[in-house]
């Protein structure tokens, strides 16, 4: 399998838009997406690790970031994780700041899409990074937090499974729902670019769709000599499931 970092080093120069589907597994992308992709090895198994390695590549070119991820924000390292996105991007649009919806504990992809449309003209001068928070849970498709009458910070979906409140299959179902939702908005972005490329003076718009890392969906892995069932993407585990991500180049 090819290394994502090497491919990015080569391909970013020719890309107009990079779309990140947060925590998207390659096998699920292949199963549920209309877009052909190859599976590649991500340099990291969690977002922060990925950003620290990949961000310098964005800095080589002038990227405007439309980001629903709070790590990529225009205020600096406000989360105190030792990562400041500002030097790597020409401008950052903070969707987390404007569109975080506490009933779903995330930023709905509709806001990413709507902001992309407003920012589309910036493609005349710059490349664009579009960061969707899906298919990463929580699900944007249901008000999980309203259902459990709590805030995002008060519950952890993985803990709900451990406690038997949610079933393993619920996690997978929510992940697939989120993937299908974000793919719908990805297709909308592609359609929008296809219809309006002349507006930004381009004959062709090249879009790269990829992910920062994968996701465990209840697979059993060996950890410290024991077989354990894992969900999400724990920062201390680097496993092929977490490192295998889709990589799709689309010319419009």
């Amino acid at each position: 399998m090819k290394e994502q970092l090497k491919l990015l080093s080569k391909d970013l120069e020719h890309c107009d838009i990079v779309i990140i589907l947060d925590a998207c597994r390659c096998d699920y992308f292949r199963k549920y997406s209309k877009i052909d992709c190859e599976c590649v090895i991500s340099p990291a198994s969690y977002t922060l690790g990925w950003l620290k390695v990949v961000s310098p590549l964005f800095q080589r070119y002038e990227f405007v970031a439309i980001s629903s991820h709070p790590y990529i924000n225009s205020k600096g390292d406000v989360l105190g994780h030792g990562y400041d996105a500002r030097p790597y991007f020409k401008y950052i649009v903070d969707l987390w700041n404007f569109y975080y919806d506490k009933s779903i504990g995330t930023v709905h992809p509709v806001h990413v899409y709507n902001t992309f449309k407003k920012m589309f003209n910036m493609l005349k001068k710059f490349k664009m990074l579009i960061w969707f928070l899906q298919p990463h849970l929580p699900p944007a498709t249901r008000s999980l937090y309203q259902y459990f009458k709590c805030d995002y910070n008060d519950i952890d979906i993985v803990k709900l499974i451990e406690r038997g409140v949610l079933k393993d299959s619920d996690y997978v179902e929510m992940y697939i729902e989120n993937l299908q939702l974000v793919l719908d908005y990805t297709y909308k972005i592609l359609d929008y670019c296809r219809d309006r490329k002349e507006v930004v003076g381009k004959r062709e718009i090249n879009v790269l769709i990829t992910s920062d890392h994968g996701e465990f969906l209840g697979e059993e892995i060996e950890l410290n000599g024991k077989k354990v069932k894992v969900f999400s993407h724990p920062g201390n585990i680097s496993h092929p499931i977490l490192r295998t991500v889709p990589y799709a180049l689309v010319s419009l």
């Binding site: 924000n73 225009s74 205020k75 401008y91 950052i92 969707l95 700041n97 404007f98 407003k118 920012m119």
Partner: peptide, 13 residues
């Protein structure tokens, strides 16, 4: 202070 330099609104930036 809560604002951002680029602030998307319903019908404009």
């Amino acid at each position: 202070a809560k604002e951002s330099e680029i602030s998307p609104r319903e019908d404009h930036i």
